[in-house]
Amino acid sequence: MIELNRVGRSFTVGRRKARKTVHAVRDLSFTVEAGEFVGYLGPNGAGKSTTIKMLTGILAPTSGRIQVAGLDPTRRRMALARRIGVVFGQRTTLWWDLPLKDSFELVRHLYKVDQIDFRRRLAELTELLGLAEFMSTPVRQLSLGQRMRGDITAALLHDPAVLVLDEPTIGLDVVSKAAMREFLRHLNADRGTTVLLTTHDLGDIEKLCRRVMVIDHGHLAFDGTLDDLRATAPDEESMEGVVTRLYSG
């Protein structure tokens, strides 16, 4: 479903004399099969966001090949958009000044979702995520938890095969976080949606992901099951300890 083959992305930073090349991602290869739930971990600045941006077609890779849902993200950006759902925890993909339901209506038109499918899915998501009470509120007036639920809904209305989530639980309170995790688990288990999730919250990983990938300094430092990850540092008691060891080593 997601396939990266020796992908690299470099940026030139600084000006004139101080100009240098920074490799945000280098020689990165991995494959995610349909139906997997993969956690994507890494310290700040390791290349997580750059990877996500390349997968979704926002950023073109400087080298290597990418295929998502059978498409090259850079060349077929708009076709890809109809097959994947993307959620950024740090910023909304909804229209800031529009009421939530207008945002959804726009999504329906832009993604060319069939009216009947749209009604059914929206009703289902409204029920699951409890959107009814703030459906007519402009997005900028929503609380973070409400906004995240709206964002997830917007990303799923066109029934994408892949859902990419960039730190979806950031800033959420304990209750919202638990509800979000339960929803994602259900989505993957019952509907078979492939999920790729980046996070700094190890609770997300432990509760949700069968497979974990760790990126550090632009390349893959670990790829395996949760148990494999624990086994890399058997003397550490907590997950935090395991991951800290991996980041620093």
Partner: peptide
């Protein structure tokens, strides 16, 4: 600068049309 251009790029519509109609 605000990062909202990224969100335009993940929608199945031309970034230009979205820019032109924004607000």
């Amino acid at each position: 600068k605000a990062g909202t251009f990224d969100t335009m790029l993940i929608r199945p519509a031309g970034a230009f049309v979205q820019m032109a109609t924004d607000r």
